[in-house]
Simulated assay, not measured.
Amino acid sequence: MAPQGSDFVAAGRPPLLRADQLKPSDILCLSGSWTIETLKEADHQVDEILKSPTSYRQLDLSGLNSLDTSGAWIIIRLLRGLKLQLSDATPINPDHVSLFEAVAETNQTVPQSLPEPGFFISTFEKTGKDVVEIYKDIRILAYLTGEIVTCLLKGIFKPRSLRFTSIVHHMDHTGLKAVPIVALMSFLVGAIVAQQGAFQLRQFGAEPFVIDLVGILVLREVGILLTAILVAGRSGSAFTAEIGSMKMREEIDAMRVMGLNIIEVLIAPRVIALIISLPLLGLVANLSGLVGGGVLLWAYSDISPTTYINWLRDAVAINTFMVGVIKAPFMALIIALISCSEGLQVGGSAESLGRRTTAAVVKSIFLMVMVDGLFAIFFAAVGY
Rank of each mutant, 00 (worst) to 15 (best):
E251P: 05
M255D: 05
G289M: 03
G259Q: 03
L287P: 02
G282V: 02
N286H: 08
T307M: 15
L260A: 09
L290R: 11
A273R: 08
A299V: 01
V295Q: 00
A273Y: 04
S301H: 10
I334T: 14
Y308L: 08
P269R: 06
I262V: 14
T320M: 03
P305N: 06
L297D: 04
Y308T: 03
I267W: 01
F321Y: 10
L312P: 01
A285W: 13
F330K: 11
L290Y: 11
G324Q: 13
V316N: 04
I334N: 14
T307G: 11
G292H: 09
M255V: 09
I267M: 01
A328T: 15
A254K: 00
G294K: 04
A254Q: 03
R270L: 02
V257H: 05
G282H: 03
K327E: 06
V316M: 09
Y308W: 03
T306H: 07
I252P: 00
I318A: 12
I272Q: 00
I272D: 06
I318P: 01
D302A: 15
S288F: 12
A273H: 08
L281H: 06
I303S: 10
W311F: 11
I272F: 14
R313L: 05
N286I: 11
V323H: 06
I309L: 10
S288I: 06
A317S: 13
V291M: 14
V271K: 07
A336T: 03
L278E: 13
G324N: 07
A273L: 09
A315D: 04
